[in-house]
């Protein structure tokens, strides 16, 4: 079965959408194509461990993963989450309802918890620009991504939460920050004052 999951790559100050296509067919091999760098290639081992330790089984099928656009170098560990979700979805463990309206980034630990990534804000800006409805980021990044309005930003601690959310079994808390109020409140809050000089 072929599924598509959306991630993003940060180039300079802007983000580019990256489509993670996963196909599962008969066989037992794993291929990762689409110019991944070392951190992304290594994600295979992380994802296998994370999936097994989260109570799912890594599918015993031939898995082909393509990350498009193929000429863009994929760096960093932010693709772990879309890859893992894509593999589970190809194994029909995740429903496809929300997948195409959702962008996600996140690094996985071996036990399936999500680790923070760099550049969550540019990704959120891009997600809104592309018309995505949801953005899933690690809990630690949620406040910086939530700056962007007209986008539902969800923070997750564990891969399980993301799977249950996509399956509609559980809801994730939408993080909504009143950025303006917070921004203006902190604006004249200084530690130092010229009166002391």
């Amino acid at each position: 079965m072929l599924v598509k999951v959306f991630g993003a790559s940060v180039q300079g100050l802007s983000a580019l959408p990256v489509t993670v296509e996963v196909n599962a067919s008969r066989g037992i091999k794993f291929f990762l194509v689409g110019l991944p760098d070392n951190a992304v290639k290594e994600s295979h081992e992380r994802i296998v461990a994370a999936i097994e330790n989260s109570g799912y089984r890594f599918p015993t099928k031939q898995i082909v993963v393509n990350m498009a656009p193929a000429d863009l170098r994929k760096e960093g560990a932010g693709y772990d989450l879309p890859l893992a979700i894509g593999i589970l979805a190809a194994d029909e463990k995740v429903s496809l309802d929300k997948l195409e309206r959702t962008m996600m980034i996140g690094e996985l630990s071996l036990d399936g918890t999500l680790q923070p990534v760099k550049g969550a804000l540019p990704v959120a800006i891009k997600a809104r620009e592309m018309g995505f409805e949801n953005l899933i980021v690690p809990e630690q990044n949620v406040r910086e991504a939530a700056v962007v309005n007209q986008l539902k930003v969800f923070g997750a601690n564990h891969m399980n939460q993301v799977v249950r959310f996509l399956n509609g079994e559980d809801v994730l808390q939408i993080t909504d920050v009143d950025t303006r109020a917070e921004f203006y409140a902190q604006q004249s809050n200084f530690d130092f004052d010229f009166a002391d000089v």
Binding site: G12, L121, P122, Q140, R143, A146, V147, T179, F183
Partner: peptide, 14 residues
């Protein structure tokens, strides 16, 4: 954000 230097509990730098 790109440099990964944002504080966890801050959203916009004020």
């Amino acid at each position: 954000s790109v440099a990964g230097k944002l504080n966890q509990d801050c959203s916009l730098i004020a």
